[in-house]
Amino acid sequence: MGATSVLSFIYFLVHLILVIRYRSRAEQKLKYFYSSIEDKSLHWINIFIIGLLLVVILDSIAGIIFVSSGIYEVSVINLLFLLALTWYIGYNGLIQRPISENLHDFQLQKETNRQEQSSNHTEYEELKKRLLAIIEEKKLYQDEDVSLRILSEYMDVPIKKVSHLINQYLDTTFYNLMNTYRIDMFKEKVKKGELEQKTILALALESGFNSKATFNRVFKQNEGMTPSQYVSASG
């Protein structure tokens, strides 16, 4: 492998690490803004990562072939692959532009946390009461598409302040807060005997969950048992 191929390998390896770190952080940040994140999946970044790995492999093969026989065709294939990969990530990036903007807002919000923490404690106590009252009165958690921005509009409070309120004063994320309400609603429906006419999945969907897989995963994380086990124990 020539010096150019080695440098290319190092270059792509560094970018792979950066992309993996970005994806992990971005998925965590989604929970600060959305109550359901499954339909905002960043799995397309996995394709991008795999694509970069293939580029590295093709580039290495091109270097070996060039050294041994001076053939350039593999480099052309490599270039075309890079163009396709660039189009792919650009297309998916445009589709998820609103998510990117929200993540940027979150970065700004974190930078102002120190200033927010020095704000009047009484003000945030009042805001907390308003926030919980609005969630319960409007039953926002039943809407699978509810977001932090929607909640901030109901409260008529800047989204950064609402985010700070949930993260610092309630010590949770918007995602976890909404799912806690959803689980409580599901449990209440079970206690009322609604399973006599409906399925577990039907009650989960009515409570605000958007899929069986999400409901099962979140329920087990919060309750330490599956929904079926909970229903059996309740009976």
Score class of each variant (00 low, 15 high):
Met1Asn: 02
Gly2Leu: 03
Ala3Asp: 08
Thr4Lys: 09
Val6Asn: 04
Leu7Trp: 13
Leu7Ala: 15
Ser8Asp: 11
Ile10His: 10
Ile10Pro: 04
Tyr11Gly: 12
Ser24Thr: 06
Arg25Ser: 12
Glu27Pro: 01
Leu30Glu: 07
Tyr32Val: 05
Phe33Cys: 08
Phe33Val: 11
Tyr34Trp: 08
Ser36Asn: 12
Leu42Met: 12
His43Ala: 10
His43Thr: 13
Ile47Asp: 14
Leu53Trp: 06
Val55Tyr: 02
Ile61Ala: 11
Ala62Ile: 03
Ala62Cys: 09
Gly63Thr: 01
Ile64Leu: 12
Ile65Arg: 12
Phe66Glu: 10
Phe66Ser: 10
Val67Ile: 13
Ile71His: 14
Tyr72Asp: 10
Ser75Gly: 05
Val76Thr: 14
Leu82Ser: 04
Ala84Asn: 06
Asn92Asp: 14
Asn92Trp: 15
Leu94Lys: 10
Ile95Leu: 15
Arg97Met: 11
Pro98Gln: 05
Ser100Met: 10
Glu101His: 07
Asp105Tyr: 05
Gln107Phe: 09
Leu108Met: 11
Gln115Leu: 14
Gln117Gly: 13
Asn120Asp: 15
His121Gly: 03
Thr122Ile: 10
Thr122Ser: 14
Glu123His: 13
Glu125Leu: 13
Glu126Asp: 13
Glu126Asn: 13
Glu126Gly: 05
Leu127Phe: 09
Arg130Trp: 08
Ala133Val: 03
Glu136Asp: 11
Glu137Met: 03
Lys139Met: 05
Leu140Arg: 00
Gln142Lys: 06
Glu144Gly: 01
Ile150Asp: 05
Lys161Gly: 02
Lys161His: 05
Tyr169His: 15
Thr172Pro: 06
Thr172Ala: 11
Thr173Met: 09
Leu177Trp: 09
Arg182Phe: 02
Arg182Asn: 00
Lys189Tyr: 10
Lys191Tyr: 07
Glu194Asp: 09
Leu195Asp: 02
Glu196Ser: 06
Lys198Thr: 00
Ile200Gly: 00
Ala202His: 08
Ala204Gly: 04
Ala204Leu: 01
Asn210Asp: 08
Lys212Cys: 00
Lys212Tyr: 06
Phe219Met: 02
Glu223Gln: 15
Thr226Leu: 07
Gln229Pro: 04
Ser232Ile: 10
Ala233Thr: 09
